[in-house]
Every structure is written in C-alpha cells, then in structure tokens.
C-alpha cells in the first residue's frame, strides 16, 4: 500500500476515529461523508468521534489460507466486531486459542502490527481485538 494511502487513515487505524451525524446521532466507522439516514441534510454536519474499541463478536472465522501478506500467520482468527457505539468492523482476534472464540463474546481493541510493505517498506500498525477477561 502506498505510504500516502496508509497515512491518510492513521486516525482510524490507530485511534478508531469515526464520525457522528449531529442531526440524528448515528455513529459511523470509518467516517462517512454524509449520514445514511439524513443524507443531504447532513452535509457539513458530521463531527469526529473517537470510538472506544469495545464491543462484541458478531461473527468470526479461522483463516487457514491467508492472503499473501498474512500467509505466514495462519491459522488466525478474523471477526466482525459490533462496537458498543453501533458500527461493526472487521479485525483479527489475538491472544487466544482458535477454540476460545464464540459469537457474543466481549472484546476490546489493541494496537498491533498489521503488516509491512516488504522488508524495506513502511510498517503498518492498526487495530486488532482481544477477548475481555
């Protein structure tokens, strides 16, 4: 991924910065330009909001054949997490065994290395999730 493409999303990848429609209150991650409900009315009325990173597992899978950047990490757990604030996001579940994960379990976000652009490229950091003890 080009450096600029990764850098642009750092507030989202590091800090789960989403946004909220100031008309209806609906929250989004990643941030949307306009609110899906209020649409045209919400132009210019979206405000930044940092999400807590806490949520529950909505669904998950254990990946055995990874994409090229992740193939040496298999098997790894991927999940759709429903954040407490409403939006759902996709992330890896770490620090547990593949059998430990169940739909509905509470999770919290952690800061981890996602990948890198080869041995001499930049390192991508971002969010993953771990089970809340």
């Amino acid at each position: 991924m080009a450096v600029s493409r990764f850098w642009r999303e750092i507030p989202q990848r590091y800090n789960l910065e989403g946004n909220q429609c100031t008309i209806c209150g609906r929250k989004y991650f990643p941030p949307k330009h306009i609110c899906d409900s209020c649409r045209r009315e919400s132009i210019g009325k979206m405000k930044k909001v940092k999400l807590s990173g806490k949520g529950r597992i909505y669904s998950y899978t254990v990946i055995h054949t990874g994409s090229s950047m992740f193939n040496l990490q298999t098997p790894y757990i991927m999940a759709i997490v429903e954040l407490n604030e409403g939006p759902r996001i996709t992330g890896q579940i770490v620090d547990c065994e593949t059998n430990d994960v169940k739909i509905g379990m509470p999770v919290e976000s952690v800061f981890r290395k996602i990948g890198e652009d080869g041995k001499n490229g930049t390192i991508y950091y971002g969010y993953k999730f771990r089970l809340v003890k």
Binding site: M1, Y60, T61, Y76, I80, Q92, I114, G126
Partner: peptide, 12 residues
C-alpha cells in the same frame, strides 16, 4: 487490509 480473505467473508 486487516487480514480478511474472500472465503473468510463467506465463512463468517
């Protein structure tokens, strides 16, 4: 970007 694959999506 976070490691999801196509089979992974349908697996979920």
């Amino acid at each position: 970007f976070f490691g999801m694959t196509f089979p992974g999506l349908y697996a979920m």
